[in-house]
């Protein structure tokens, strides 16, 4: 048996797990509901008895977009009107959904992106030097 992970149920912990290339969410010990991003209080039964669980990182595309007019921090990564980035919502095989960057699609042909496409997690390294960090992304299989 693995020892229970003792980290607070916060975005900071979630991001720290990402740096360790782990996709982590929480499970309610009372009703077994799964949450990713993690929750400290169960949205189904309101119990605060939660535990960290690792997700497989496999799923399928639930919704997407290709962003031509992007956020400043994304534009700083080289995206612009002519070079859009893709983002969306992935439904994980565990049955819950998460927002993430999408990789592996043709940015010039967003109409070819298919909802339901099989996806797998990819820990995307962005930034330079001190700013370097892993960002959550999913790549089409």
């Amino acid at each position: 048996m693995n020892e229970k992970i003792q980290r607070p149920f916060t975005a900071s912990s979630f991001n720290q797990f990402l740096q360790e290339q782990k996709l982590m969410g929480t499970r309610c010990e009372k009703c077994n509901a799964l949450f990713i991003p993690p929750r400290a209080i169960c949205a189904k039964c309101r119990s605060d008895q939660m535990t960290w669980v690792e997700f497989s990182g496999k799923g399928k595309l639930a919704a997407f977009t290709s962003v031509n007019i992007g956020l400043t921090f994304m534009n700083a990564q080289g995206f612009d009107r002519k070079n859009p980035y893709q983002t969306g919502i992935v439904e994980l095989e565990e049955g819950v959904m998460i927002s993430a960057r999408l990789l592996g699609f043709n940015p010039q042909d967003p109409a070819s992106i298919k909802i339901g496409a099989p996806m797998h997690v990819e820990f995307l390294e962005i930034g330079e030097g001190e700013e370097k960090r892993m960002q959550l992304a999913f790549r089409v299989d």
């Binding site: 962003v67 007019i69 960002q135």
Partner: peptide
């Protein structure tokens, strides 16, 4: 959790 994925309001 949403903005880090690059979502804009139109997005």
């Amino acid at each position: 959790y949403e903005i880090p994925a690059g979502f804009t309001f139109p997005g």
